[in-house]
Design a binder for these strands. Structure first.
Lengths: 176, 176
DNA sequence: CTGGAATCGTTTGGGGTCAAACGATATAGT
DNA sequence: ACTATATCGTTTGACCCCAAACGATTCCAG
């Protein structure tokens, strides 16, 4: 089930789902799966938008650009196709994102010394400094998002999502 | 924390998170929040891609186009700005998506009889038939995704996500 | 060695994405 | 009536997004 952003009324989340079930009740659907998956989409989309506005916009970074920088910052210099997979985008998309970041002086690009097909990407010093201040801000906002949950619920959530992820990664691998 | 698609090795999900924690351990981060939120992004992104490939691609529909159609199909004709909010996209984006769907004969557009600023959008008969066969397929894939979870876990997940959503919707509302 | 196959990152084409500016329309206040 | 003001959907510009085709480079089989 897709996003379905509803809102306006805060307490009609479940009511909305009930309405859906009523209208397509004859169809014999898996309502629990529908509720679980659709809420994943909703939360992810809302949280991403939240992060872009509250943390990233001030530095003129898109969520994807931040992700790419983050992967590079944590794991160090790496080849383009690997960075793309790790960032969850296609290699074609990475070409564009890397170009934007390079133009802004946040990303470094060099050809692999032993294989001229390969491109090695890494963060600039400026980007490293930026991430050192930006990522704690980002994490603080993650805390804001999850603080409505108990510590136990947070770990439950992470565990459940890891289970799903493992199942999903069997066939999917990642965009190519 | 952003997506971080990892993979290759199936069991390094937690190992990966541990590595991250080690490398930025001096920073005093909220590791539980990081794990929970980052996994939401990962799962959502992977699941969305999965749906596009397995269900939507055969009908040449983007995830967003499907979402818009779905909202319209379930809730009936409505004004553009409302549909945009409900679909989780900005009104500007909806203009383009609606144009694409209209061009393909899946969406109907008319001016509100009493207020000529407003545009009323609805699904065509063709789109209604399409959704009647497509949505059960979509839901079946949701089942595939969540079948690694127990029934209890599925409901736990939905409940936890609803909590987060309510917290997020206080300030954010939705894109405008 | 040398030609075919595989693999790399880039380009292309057709969308989706937002914020901000815009023109058209409706609503108030005077 | 008339003139601000508000609100609607659309346009604009810059970016993200993918699959598929592409040229460059490497690898491998004969």
């Amino acid at each position: 089930m897709p996003a379905g952003f509803s809102s306006s009324d805060k307490n009609d989340l479940i009511e909305s789902e009930r309405q859906v079930q009523e209208r397509i009740g004859e169809m014999n659907l898996d309502v629990d799966a529908l509720a679980a998956v659709s809420n994943i989409f909703r939360v992810a989309s809302t949280a991403r938008y939240h992060m872009e506005r509250e943390v990233l916009a001030a530095h003129d970074l898109s969520f994807t650009a931040f992700t790419v920088l983050w992967v590079l910052w944590i794991w160090g210099e790496q080849e383009a196709r690997h960075l793309a997979a790790e960032s969850g985008i296609s290699k074609g998309t990475l070409t564009g994102v890397a170009r934007t970041l390079e133009r802004r002086g946040l990303l470094l690009r060099r050809t692999h010394p032993n294989d001229r097909r390969l491109v090695l990407l890494s963060v600039s010093d400026e980007a490293a400094e930026l991430m050192a201040t930006l990522f704690p801000r980002f994490n603080a906002e993650e805390t804001t998002i999850t603080k409505v949950l108990s510590s136990k619920e947070q770990q439950q959530l992470a565990n459940i999502l890891r289970k799903i992820l493992r199942g999903l990664e069997v066939d999917a691998s990642s965009p190519e």
